[in-house]
């Protein structure tokens, strides 16, 4: 397991190596979800697929947005838009820790030279009604990943349990590449004819979004969108399971869940604009959680969610 690998030279090489590694371990390499989300967990490939009895193994990069973390591209470690690498395997295999350590070796972390530790860190997502137990993984005192065994998602007990790995790609890559400021990190190969740094790609967008997130986003419009997304989510789920046009049973868990994701991101934007008070905050989170739960309820009524005609699901 502890093989020495040559050090990658760029951000994208680290991503490519993770993709190759998890592909070689049998994961379906999926693409990012095409909506704004706060973390890789929101991708339906994790949230919804961790529900129900059907086995699943997926890995993907997910661009993630946290409007409140915007620092106009000036902070060496903080970004309002960043990448997570996400792995979800159901049921969690017995050697998941070893598989994970193999992925660190694959991106050039030499186990013989570094101190890797699994430090207690339980995970909870109040917006998704989800929680699990696990660790943050430390490499020489730095958190490089979250490692979680999902126990509950959308209010449903997970049977079987999924093992979830989340890598904060920028931070991990900065460490592996020995870079102190995220904007200085080579995005592609530094020897390439047109070498691009992370800053070349993202400094400007960080500035633009920081300004918009904090000062410009129209809160009335955001609020209206939030309410529309909430209403649409509920309306979709209120539809009969049997489609009158095709005569087929089509439970629209995914379209409804899209609206839930939307509501969640709109809430994050409103939060960044500072228009949500402490007490309201809980109420908004509760509204998103209620949607997530309903979507989860719907998903377990679908084939992918393990629904079988005539069987009563728990």
């Amino acid at each position: 397991m502890a093989q020495t690998t040559d050090t990658p030279r760029s951000f994208q090489e680290i991503i490519l190596r993770l993709q190759a590694y998890w592909a070689s371990k049998g994961c379906a390499i999926m693409q990012p979800y095409d909506m704004e989300v706060g973390a890789g967990t929101f991708h339906p490939a994790t949230t919804l697929r961790s529900l129900g009895s059907k086995p699943w193994a997926a890995a993907y990069v997910q661009p993630s947005r946290r409007p409140t973390d915007g620092r106009y591209g000036e902070n060496p470690n903080r970004l309002q838009h960043y990448y997570q690498y996400q792995v979800l395997i159901k049921p969690s295999p017995p050697d998941l820790q070893d598989l994970y350590l193999g992925s660190l070796a694959a991106i050039g972390i030499d186990m013989e030279m570094h101190d890797i530790r699994f430090v207690e860190d339980d995970w909870e997502s109040p917006t998704l009604g989800a929680w699990g137990l696990g660790w943050e993984v430390w490499c020489d005192g730095m958190e490089v990943s979250q490692f979680t065994y999902f126990q509950q998602v959308g209010g449903h007990d997970c049977h079987p349990v999924s093992g979830e790995l989340t890598y904060g790609l920028e931070r991990l890559a900065m460490y592996v590449l020995g870079v102190d400021h995220v904007m200085d990190m080579p995005f592609n190969d530094p020897q390439a004819p047109i070498a691009l740094s992370y800053g070349d790609v993202f400094r400007q967008t960080e500035q633009e979004y920081s300004r918009w997130n904090f000062d410009v986003a129209n809160t009335e419009v955001l609020l209206k969108h939030f309410e529309e997304a909430e209403a649409e989510c509920e309306a979709i789920l209120a539809q009969a399971h049997d489609d009158p046009k095709t005569g087929k049973r089509i439970v629209m868990a995914h379209p409804a869940y899209d609206q839930c994701i939307k509501a969640s991101h709109l809430f994050n934007l409103l939060d960044a604009r500072g228009v949500i008070s402490v007490t309201e905050r809980q109420a908004y989170i509760g509204r998103v959680r209620a949607l997530a739960k309903k979507c989860a309820d719907a998903f377990v009524q679908t084939d992918a969610g393990g629904w079988v005609a005539g069987e009563v699901t728990a």
Partner: peptide, 28 residues
């Protein structure tokens, strides 16, 4: 003082350097 969970052939130099870097970010 930090406590690592292993010995290394560079007597912990890499581990210590990493920890120092993380600390610098925290203290910044």
């Amino acid at each position: 003082i930090t406590v690592a969970n292993r010995e290394t052939r560079d007597n912990g130099a890499t581990i210590l350097a990493g920890n120092q870097k993380v600390l610098a970010a925290r203290l910044s």
